[in-house]
């Protein structure tokens, strides 16, 4: 496959994932979007819906990137990128920010993952043997948000499953994941195990199971993943 068409395919995957997550947003939701793919969810908030984005570094109401020449060094998001305000923006300290997060006031946290397992454990901050960058706010987000959605590709670059029976990497949180959305499927974490609720059009349940380590429970309401 050519480089261009590979890049095209990757963008395709990401778009499918973030669009599906965006369709779960509701008017008045306060949402934290993790660094990387999750930030793209902001591009698909339905028109006319108020979704207020929270940034762990002390801001509620994140606007789009600024126009060139209008960047403000005092106005950045959790990924250290320059951003803008919206009408209704508020600023506060980091202690207040994490009180908001840890205290269960954020409706939805969307994060990436290296691994998710059958119990909803999440590993997304460290690979032993590679440099340790730090966990930042991820552990607090998964401990505090009302709902945690993982946005990730279904397999690694080498085609290996990322949804495992048991995480092998250092954990970010125990039993914290509610929903996993990949380009192939939407999977709910339940006390009984992982339930396959939606599949991307053109795929069948076996194809999803083949690249998922734990046995998936097929939902009686299995439907096509719309995006």
């Amino acid at each position: 496959m050519s480089m261009a068409s590979k890049v095209g395919k990757d963008l395709d995957k990401r778009e499918r994932i973030v669009k599906r997550i965006a369709s779960d947003l509701r008017d008045g939701f306060y949402v934290n979007l993790g660094i990387g793919m999750p930030t793209l969810v902001a591009n698909y908030v339905p028109a006319g819906m108020d979704v207020i984005l929270q940034s762990e570094n002390g801001m509620l109401g994140i606007g789009p990137y600024p126009l060139e020449g209008s960047e403000d060094a005092d106005l950045i998001n959790a990924g250290k990128e320059t951003i803008t305000e919206i009408k209704g923006t508020a600023y506060f300290s980091s202690a207040d920010s994490f009180a908001m997060i840890r205290g269960g006031h954020i409706d939805l946290s969307v994060l990436g993952a290296m691994e998710v397992d059958e119990e909803g454990n999440l590993a997304n901050w460290m690979v032993p043997g590679r440099t340790v960058k730090g966990m930042g706010g991820a552990m607090d987000l998964v401990a505090g948000a009302r709902r945690v959605i993982i946005a990730m590709e279904h397999t690694t670059r080498e085609g290996q499953p990322k949804i495992l029976k048991q995480c092998t990497l250092p954990l970010t949180g125990v039993r914290v994941v509610d929903t996993i959305v990949t380009e192939m499927a939407l999977i709910q974490v339940t006390p009984k195990g992982l339930v396959l609720e939606e599949i991307a059009s053109g795929l069948n349940a076996n194809e999803v199971q083949r690249v998922t380590e734990p046995t998936l429970i097929i939902s009686p309401n299995l439907r096509v993943m719309e995006s």
């Binding site: 300290s93 994490f98 340790v132 730090g134 966990m135 930042g136 552990m139 607090d140």
Partner: peptide, 15 residues
């Protein structure tokens, strides 16, 4: 020596 602390815990420890 590097000590890494979750950001919310870090914030609250200082507070």
């Amino acid at each position: 020596q590097l000590d890494l602390v979750p950001q919310g815990t870090f914030s609250e420890r200082i507070r």
